[in-house]
Design a protein around this nucleic acid. Structure first.
Lengths: 145, 145
DNA sequence: TTATTACTTAATAATCTTTATAAATAGTGT
DNA sequence: ACACTATTTATAAAGATTATTAAGTAATAA
């Protein structure tokens, strides 16, 4: 299942004329298989074992390549570092105010919002993003103690 | 009109036991009267003339105070620095992919999304945010040349 | 196969935003 | 006016990201 997506992504890269290097492959693979929207640093740390000499810049470079092609999305929240999400299926995020946990949340796309925004502002709308904030179950329990 | 909001904000500060210093007053005033969701640095630069010795830290300190009291909201987008919005009336933002312009967009609050998110994830939901992205009218024109 | 070229990596420095620290200053209540 | 404490200032420090440059590596053509 996620193998398919991986093959598809590799094909997209190839057709965009992007070389598939071992480091690039590893970053993409990590993104594909990770469910927690990692930061650049988390990716870097996770691949340290496999690529002891890899530079942080390489992670950033490759993330930018993926971003440009549209393979991944960059998510910026209040905290200092960006997170990267390669889940291309439409979904929203629910974020814990207290521990920062991010949970995927499926909801029918809000097309009518985009349409109204276009009418009201004259923008040529491309997409939207939404996040819901709250306290996750773990943090709710911790607080009650 | 915005004078009322200013008075109201000052009252909120006072009742929270926060001192109203000239610098603090100026930062708040600038936020209140600015319509373009400024960054901390923009605020700093704008007040440089009036307060030649003001420190950047002062801007950040005051912004945090305002955030804690709930007078302003912090907006984090893809670009490097946070923006600050003191418009407390509920609204969403439409952001230009090309020039970064931010336009306010009024739409009935998506309460049902919050409710469903609560049910599905078990979170105790506090709020949500949404941004619509696209190309603004100016950038559409520029592209067509 | 070899050479050429362009792309990619790695190492490092630099930049930029934001936060921490400590001393000086200024508000506020008495 | 005095004392107490919050706030400002100046500076340094931290952290994330980008720029730079030299070295390495894949793709392509001769």
């Amino acid at each position: 299942m996620s193998e398919e997506r991986m093959q598809e992504a590799l094909a997209t890269l190839k057709s965009s004329g992007v070389r598939i290097t071992p480091q690039r492959h590893a970053v993409l693979e990590y993104l594909m298989h990770s469910m927690n929207h990692p930061t650049a640093d988390e990716i870097y740390k996770a691949l340290e074992g496999k690529f002891p000499n890899m530079s942080v810049a390489t992670v950033y470079n490759n993330l930018r390549v993926f971003l440009d092609i549209g393979l991944v999305r960059e998510l910026t929240y209040g905290d200092s570092s960006s997170r990267f999400d390669c889940n291309t299926t439409e979904h929203y995020h629910v974020i814990c105010n207290s521990c920062g946990k991010i949970v995927d949340f499926h909801y029918p796309a809000l097309d009518e919002v985009e349409q109204l925004a276009e009418q009201v502002t004259g923008f040529n709308v491309s997409h939207h993003r939404m996040e819901v904030y709250g306290t996750c179950t773990d943090c709710q329990e911790n607080k009650s103690h």
